[in-house]
Amino acid sequence: MARIVDLVAAALVPERCLHCRGPARAGAPLCDACRRALPWLPVDGCPRCGLPRPCAQGRCPAARTALAGAWAPLAHEGAARALVLAAKARAARRVAPWLAAAMTARAPAGLLAGVEVVVPAAADPARRRRRGEDHARLVADAVGRALDAPVAPLLVRRRSAPAQHARGRTARLTLPPPIVAGPVPAVVLLVDDVHTTGATLAASADALRAAGAQRVVALTATRALR
Rank of each mutant, 00 (worst) to 15 (best):
Ile179Pro: 00
Val143Phe: 04
Arg129Ile: 00
Gly114His: 13
Ala121Ser: 13
Val139Cys: 05
Ala121Thr: 05
His195Asp: 14
Leu173Asn: 03
Leu173Phe: 09
Thr197Gln: 09
Ser160Asn: 02
Ala202Lys: 04
Val191Tyr: 14
Asp193Thr: 08
Arg127Asn: 04
Arg128Phe: 02
Val188Ile: 10
Thr170Gly: 08
Ala186Ser: 09
Asp124Pro: 09
Leu112His: 12
Ser160Glu: 11
Ala181Glu: 11
Val194Ser: 03
Leu154Trp: 01
Pro153Ala: 04
Pro108Leu: 09
Asp193Arg: 05
Arg106Lys: 10
Pro183Leu: 14
Thr197Arg: 02
Ala163Arg: 12
Ala140Ser: 06
Leu201Lys: 02
Gly110Asp: 05
Ala199Gly: 05
Ala105His: 15
Leu190Glu: 03
Ile179Gly: 08
Arg128Trp: 07
Leu147Ser: 11
Met103Tyr: 08
Ala163Thr: 10
Gly182Arg: 09
Asp124Cys: 01
Ala140Met: 06
Val191Leu: 03
Ile179Asp: 15
Val180Tyr: 02
Pro185Leu: 03
Leu190Ala: 07
Arg159Met: 03
Arg130Lys: 12
Thr174Asn: 04
Ala146Leu: 14
Pro125Cys: 01
Asp192Tyr: 07
Pro177Asn: 08
Ala140His: 09
Arg127Val: 06
Thr197Trp: 02
Val180Thr: 14
Ala146Val: 07
Ala123Cys: 06
Pro120Glu: 04
Ala149Asn: 03
Pro183Ala: 14
Asp134Phe: 01
Ala101Cys: 02
